[in-house]
């Protein structure tokens, strides 16, 4: 994936708590290969009626070009499906602002260039009030560590390692393979110290 430092976009509010990964992408869409694009599956069952017609007033339908989502606590809780992040990214979302995130979701987000920005509940509540059902301009600066939205500047709480991954678009596999010798020597001492860690032969 490619890294990024600044994003200028449009933010909308999704004032819901516990938006779980089953909402972000219902399981029935998950057998599709990524090359098909996952954007149309994003929040599919919240955005569409059971007959498949879109619900016009749903934030992502009324503002399809939104790239920053402001949501309630525990965003991305539930299943480890990275497809939930694919759906957001393929729909054009670059940043989700919420008071808390599911741990696995947050890791998956970073691995796909999506910023999970943890922001205090009170601030998120104020953003909900400020945004209402409208879309507003927002900018995210990973280097400066700030988000500008609705006339405020919010400081990003982002661990250095995660910020570096987003900025550089680093692939951990390359980074880790540079430690190949250390891994090989760990492996042999690990097996020697505790031979039982290897599965017994049948």
């Amino acid at each position: 994936m490619s890294g990024w430092t600044r994003h200028e976009g449009v933010a909308v509010a999704l004032p819901l708590e516990n938006v779980d990964t089953d909402q972000l992408i219902p399981a029935r869409f998950m057998s599709a290969p990524r090359s098909q694009g996952y954007g149309s599956y994003l929040l599919h069952d919240l955005r569409h009626r059971s007959d498949g017609t879109p619900i016009a007033e749903f934030p992502l339908n009324s503002h399809p070009r939104a790239s920053v989502l402001v949501a309630g606590r525990n965003f991305g809780c539930g299943s480890s499906r990275e497809a939930a992040v694919y759906a957001l990214v393929d729909h054009g979302i670059r940043t989700v602002i919420a008071p808390s995130f599911g741990d696995i979701f947050a890791a998956n987000a970073i691995n796909n260039g999506l910023l999970p920005a943890r922001v205090d509940t009170e601030v998120v509540e104020e953003l909900f009030a400020a945004l209402g059902v409208e879309a507003v301009k927002a900018s995210v600066d990973l280097v400066a560590g700030t988000i500008r939205i609705a006339g405020r500047e919010i400081a990003l709480e982002l661990e250095e390692e995660k910020g570096a991954k987003l900025i550089n678009g680093w692939d951990d596999i390359d980074l880790t393979r540079s430690h190949a010798q250390v891994i090989a020597s760990f492996r042999s001492s690990h097996f020697q110290r505790a031979p039982w860690v290897r599965p017994a032969d049948i």
Binding site: I104, D172, I173
Partner: peptide
């Protein structure tokens, strides 16, 4: 873990 981590 997610798919990127599974690959890792």
């Amino acid at each position: 873990i997610g798919a990127t981590e599974v690959a890792h």
